[in-house]
Simulated scan of single mutants.
Amino acid sequence: MNDIGTKRASIWCERFGKLMEENGYTQESFLKEYKKKYGGGTQANVSRWLGVGRMIKKDGTPKAIGFPSYENMLNIADFFDVTVGYLTGETDFETFEMEKACKQIGIDEDTGKAIKGIVTGESVEPFGKYEAKELRAVFKCLVTANSFPVLIKKVREYAENVYYMKNPINYLEIAKQKIGKDIIDLAIQCMDYQVEHDDEYGDIDDFKENGIERTEELSNAIRILNEAEDKGGGEVMMCERDVELSEYKLQKVYFEIIKEIVSDKNLPEMTIPRNEDINLAKIKCGN
């Protein structure tokens, strides 16, 4: 196989194996269902299909296992309700319908599948599939709410502030680049050293007491490092403040959108009527 063929084979094996695992199939159980649906196939076939690209020896010569026949590729794709293109890596979308829908609104397949799982109730436990109509109503009210775009914006701002808090600019490392390598270690050692006068203890000179000559170059290096340390500390405090502020704003928008969603006009769509409500409606309608 060439490089493209090798890559396609690798993707085929990965996605075919994943589909088998997600649907709870062993080779034996898959073969049983496959034969029932398409009327052919052997254990050796399934093993080869799952091992496309693997090197084997044939007549003493190493040879890569090839792809199934196109008919079998179509059958396998149909069996798992995906496309051949998905299995071979030509597209990352499992179905043409999902690809079209996702591209139309500008989202990736994982997002599309997540939305589908919500509105069909498949990903909502327990009993989600029995509440699909109401779940669709909730989802519609959520994404069409006036506050929803604001919520998205505030989540993005909050995420950015959290990122900056967790990944602050290292001003000290930047400052070190401005100082000569021959003096950097000594400057770091002396960052807290002082020269001052105290009425009780008299003159205090940490440099002199430690036998260090306080040159202009050393003093300038210490100043640069101390300024960087102060700036870094200020940056951390500012980031923490921004996180707290954006978190407060996000919570405020959250409560606004909840209030908007559960307005009187939306409640009937999202509610499953109780038996008493249904009976009352019948009485009012004269049925």
Rank of each mutant, 00 (worst) to 15 (best):
M1R: 09
N2L: 08
D3P: 00
T6W: 03
I11K: 04
C13P: 01
E14M: 10
M20V: 02
E22T: 12
N23I: 03
Y25L: 06
L31W: 04
E33M: 07
K35H: 05
K36C: 02
Y38K: 09
G39I: 08
T42S: 15
T42C: 06
S47I: 04
G51I: 00
M55V: 15
K57D: 11
Y70V: 14
Y70Q: 14
I76H: 03
I76R: 01
D78Y: 01
V82K: 01
T83D: 04
G85K: 03
Y86Q: 06
L87N: 01
T88K: 08
E90N: 11
T91D: 05
T91K: 03
E97K: 14
M98C: 02
K100I: 06
K103I: 01
K103M: 10
I105K: 05
I105L: 05
I107F: 03
I107T: 04
D108T: 06
E109P: 02
G112A: 04
G112E: 00
G112N: 03
A114D: 05
A114L: 09
K116F: 06
K116P: 00
V119Y: 04
G121F: 02
G121W: 02
V124L: 08
E125L: 13
P126F: 05
G128A: 07
Y130W: 10
E131A: 13
A132F: 04
A132I: 05
L135W: 01
L135T: 05
V138P: 01
F139L: 13
L142M: 14
L142G: 06
N146C: 07
K154Q: 15
V155T: 13
E157W: 03
E160V: 10
Y164G: 02
N167R: 11
L172H: 07
A175Y: 03
A175P: 05
G180I: 04
G180H: 06
K181L: 06
A187E: 00
I188M: 10
Q189H: 09
M191P: 00
M191G: 02
Y193V: 02
Y193A: 01
E196C: 12
E196I: 10
D199C: 05
E200T: 14
E200I: 14
Y201D: 13
D205Q: 08
F207S: 06
F207Q: 06
E209T: 12
G211A: 02
N220Y: 08
I222Q: 02
R223W: 09
L225F: 02
N226Y: 01
N226D: 06
E227R: 13
E229Q: 13
E229G: 04
D230K: 15
G232P: 06
G233L: 07
V236L: 15
V236K: 15
C239I: 03
R241D: 13
D242Q: 14
D242G: 01
L245T: 15
Y248K: 15
K249G: 00
Y254R: 12
I257N: 06
I257L: 12
I258C: 13
D264K: 15
N266M: 09
L267M: 15
P268D: 08
E269R: 14
T271Q: 08
I272H: 11
I278M: 13
I278E: 11
K282S: 08
I283L: 14
K284P: 00
